[in-house]
Amino acid sequence: MGEQRTLASVVYDSKRKVTRRERFLQEMDRVIPWATLIALVAPHYVKPGRGRRPMPLETMLRIYFLQQWFNLSDPQAEDMLYNSESMRRFARVELGEDTVPDESTILRFRHLLEAHQLTAQMFDAVRDLLAARDVLVTTGTTVDATLIAAPSSTKNATKTRDPEMRQTRKGKSWYFGMKCHIGTDPQGFVHTLVTTDAAHSDIGQLPHLVHGLEDTLHGDKAYWKEADRVAYEAHGGQYLINQRGERTPARDALNRERSRIRARGEHLFHVVKVLWGFTKVRYRGLMKNTVRALAAFALANLLLARKRLVPAGT
């Protein structure tokens, strides 16, 4: 953002109320490790040379994060940069001087992240940051999964549904889409993310969600397996998966007690799906939506940890 200011920007500075959107963007701006994330993308980003001057890398990364938080398509992201002063300020774009990235530029940047799987590296970088700041702990793991819906209609150019998505039954209802499987620490910070189509069983992904250093393992009944319990406890661990079997007052009380800890693993789902709107896939194919999921859960980790990453009053 340059020093040239528009009249609208100057007037915006004089307003008295700080909106919830502004406060949220300010908090996220302080906790995101910009230097680390930019360094991950920089080797793959276009360098200035012949042709049109590329947009600043940090600006494009900031716009990409805005897309995750406000569930914006590429055209919507371009429109919001014209409509919202708070978003322009977060993206470091000034209408009076800077060029606003168009939807094609935003699309190409997203494709760059997908081609090099850079959001997986961002996810790892955020996890390492939380571990280094003693926010993420390794004493236990909670495993869980959530469904992300996909369009089941065949009214499209290919007259087919997404071949990488599948359907599954939950209760008496059928769902078509994908699953996000996560492993979190006892506080609810996700350390592992795996995606599959919706037909994959939850328990089948359990070996991919543990890191091997935990002493306790929590999860709902979908992860219960007697053979796993025997093996886990034989190695000195506490197998605290909710028990299956006939319901009795004692078993119900035990599962309720275990669920008090297990439920913390669902806080990230609330942020990503309810607050940020990632309830339905935007793209075809599991890879593209996995890229988005990794970015969303990394940012959700930072949101939940923001008060511990930034001292009060800064």
Rank of each mutant, 00 (worst) to 15 (best):
D74C: 08
P75E: 09
P75I: 12
Q76E: 10
A77K: 00
A77Q: 00
E78D: 13
E78T: 02
D79F: 05
M80F: 11
M80N: 05
L81A: 04
S84R: 01
E85I: 11
E85K: 03
M87V: 04
R88F: 04
R89T: 00
R89K: 12
F90Q: 09
F90L: 12
F90P: 01
R92S: 13
E94N: 09
G96C: 05
E97S: 10
E97T: 02
D98I: 04
P101E: 08
D102N: 11
D102L: 15
D102T: 02
E103C: 14
T105L: 14
I106K: 02
R108F: 09
R110D: 06
R110G: 09
R110H: 07
H111V: 13
H111Q: 14
L112K: 06
L113K: 07
E114G: 10
E114A: 14
A115G: 09
A115T: 01
A115M: 12
T119N: 14
T119P: 06
A120F: 08
Q121R: 11
Q121T: 01
M122S: 12
F123T: 04
V126K: 06
R127I: 06
R127A: 13
D128I: 04
D128N: 11
L130C: 03
A131W: 09
A131M: 08
A131Y: 07
A132Y: 06
R133C: 10
V135N: 05
V137L: 15
V137W: 07
V137M: 14
T139G: 12
T139A: 15
T142G: 10
T142M: 15
V143K: 01
A145N: 02
T146C: 15
L147Q: 04
L147Y: 04
I148C: 14
A149D: 06
A150Y: 00
P151F: 02
S153T: 07
T154Y: 10
K155I: 07
K155E: 15
